[in-house]
Simulated assay, not measured.
Amino acid sequence: MSLNLPRRPLPARLDPALAIVNIVLLLIFFFLSAGQPARPIGDLQLARTQQLPPGTLPSPVLELRGAERWLLDGQPILPELLAAALPPHDGPLHVMIDRQAPASLLLELLRRPELEGHDIRLVTQPDRPAP
């Protein structure tokens, strides 16, 4: 006498093509979103100081007016003599630069070895009404 038992169902297999399709769709969405052009910033306003009394300027202030025209606390100084004129590292060095000055001027100042160890802070210049 023979017994006919029901066969076990085969385990379900996931089709590997489904995973590939999902990855391809994710890549398409990623490249569509990453490829969008950046929106231009139209309403960017830089900070401006409207009134700054002369007696409230912090010290020391290094004012950059050009590549060779520097003022340290209102006194002209040559860039080569900056190391000797700087006070010790006891406080921050305030740097004042015109808004229209090239960024390379500020970057060259920050690369100078005599400024290593100093806390550098940028100070804004007040807007002066046109005469």
Rank of each mutant, 00 (worst) to 15 (best):
Q51R: 13
F30Y: 08
L27A: 15
P102S: 15
V24P: 04
T124M: 09
A12T: 09
L115T: 05
S104D: 13
H89W: 04
L57E: 05
G35E: 03
Q50F: 05
Q36T: 05
R65T: 04
P87W: 10
R112S: 06
E116Q: 12
P9H: 07
R48G: 05
P92M: 10
L82D: 13
L122R: 07
G66F: 03
M96F: 02
G42D: 05
A83Y: 05
L26S: 10
E108Y: 01
G66N: 06
L115F: 04
G66K: 01
R69L: 06
D98P: 02
N22E: 13
L86N: 13
P102T: 10
R69F: 00
L26I: 13
F29C: 09
P76I: 04
R39G: 00
P11F: 12
P6F: 01
L107T: 09
R7I: 08
L82E: 08
P126Q: 10
L105A: 12
I28M: 07
D15Q: 14
P76Y: 05
G55D: 12
A130Q: 10
I120R: 03
G117K: 02
V24H: 00
M1Y: 02
E63M: 08
G91K: 11
I28S: 04
R48M: 04
L82N: 12
S59Y: 12
Q45F: 02
R7F: 06
L27P: 02
L52K: 01
Q51P: 00
V21K: 02
E68P: 01
I120G: 04
I120W: 08
A83K: 13
G74R: 06
D119G: 02
P87D: 11
L78R: 12
R7E: 11
L82F: 06
A85Q: 15
H94S: 14
I28V: 14
Q75F: 03
L81T: 12
P87S: 10
R8G: 04
L81Y: 03
P58H: 12
L122E: 00
